[in-house]
Design a protein around this nucleic acid. Structure first.
Lengths: 195, 195
DNA sequence: CCTGTAACTAAACAACGTTTAGATTGTGTC
DNA sequence: GACACAATCTAAACGTTGTTTAGTTACAGG
């Protein structure tokens, strides 16, 4: 991915922001949000506690940066899976599954994407990446729908699927094995409405 | 609601657990999860910091108790709205809207119901209340479905709706005005599959 | 080479949840 | 009605957290 420019000195790390994001995601994957702390992250990155705050302002800024990177990863994955899909309908399903799969492939990143209590949802860069990923689903849905279907209806369906995909990964009484069939049924039910 | 037995003395509060739950929900409604702390809660209740931990074990225990009470409130509301509904189909929609409406009527309670990072989802009492509320939706869905529909299919649909209702309240890019129409469309799409 | 600026350190701060030992009150028993 | 026991809450201290401030170090441009 992004090649680290290699630490130039003890003082000037060289690429600290990136290191903090990646190492932060790794720490989150291991310890979860509860076990996460700025101090642990700083120690892992080989810097002092104050260093992260210098780049990201606050702990909230760090989470926002990680979530931003997460939405980039999700958008990449969505675009890839959509291109691999045969029909537009399959593309929609694959895109919804992409977020779910990210929960296992990139747990550190996926775990903070919708944590509005931890990150700053008003951050303009964050909003841009999140909107872009969502836009991919919406446009795929527009391609899958019949020509007669209004844009408004496509928009509603896209948001419904977005919410369902997110909710399924959070709810306590839903097993991981159940998520894929549920998501499959939900996509089928919505797509049927668009014909 | 629950009449407070009135503080019997400075030492023995009389009904501290209940007070902590209600005052905790009030604090959450005002300051959100981020502004919440055991110390603030203790001060509001007129006790020391250690008192809440004595009853609930830890801060996690307090959140679990509040969430438990929240699911009781939701179940009551769901049952009431279902009975007021004309058709079984309307009952399903009303039940899904109940959780959304709770977000404004009881924001303190609603905000912690699915916060698995804060509460203990393995708590047996908590699970019981959560399962009961979910069961109400599932049985309402069974009544709304055609006789031919398998229980498995009803179960999947119930979980999908449960997840959608939760996801809609969390996602950043969904306005509050949009939630009801989205939920309405989702319920309609799913119910159509059950006929 | 020298100067200005960005990057990071070091130290101190208040606030937090948790734990321990002890003080206080209510309850059941003879 | 007095006594012992158990439950309830206090008081104080502990380690950890994110943030802030002043100061140190290294890089980059003229």
């Amino acid at each position: 991915m992004t090649q680290s420019p290699r630490a130039r000195s003890a003082y000037h790390h060289g690429d600290l922001p990136n290191t903090l994001i990646e190492e932060g995601a790794r720490l989150l994957a291991e310890s979860g949000v509860a076990g996460f702390s700025l101090r642990k992250l700083a120690q892992r990155a080989g810097v002092t506690v104050a260093a992260p705050s210098h780049h990201f302002g606050s702990a909230r800024g760090v989470f926002t940066a990680i979530a931003q990177r997460a939405f980039e990863k999700l958008a990449d994955q969505m675009a890839a899976e959509a291109q691999a899909a045969g029909t537009p309908q399959d593309a929609v399903l694959a895109m919804c599954l992409a977020y779910f799969h990210m929960q296992t492939t990139d747990p550190g990143y996926a775990g903070v994407m919708f944590r509005l209590d931890l990150l700053d949802a008003t951050d303009i860069d964050f909003r841009a990446r999140a909107s872009h990923a969502f836009g991919l689903l919406e446009s795929a849905l527009a391609r899958a729908a019949a020509p007669r279907v209004a844009a408004r209806e496509v928009e509603i369906t896209a948001r419904a699927l977005w919410a369902t995909a997110q909710g399924l990964t959070v709810l306590p009484m839903i097993e991981r094995d159940e998520i894929e069939p549920i998501l499959r049924a939900t996509v089928a039910a919505h797509l049927r409405q668009l014909f």
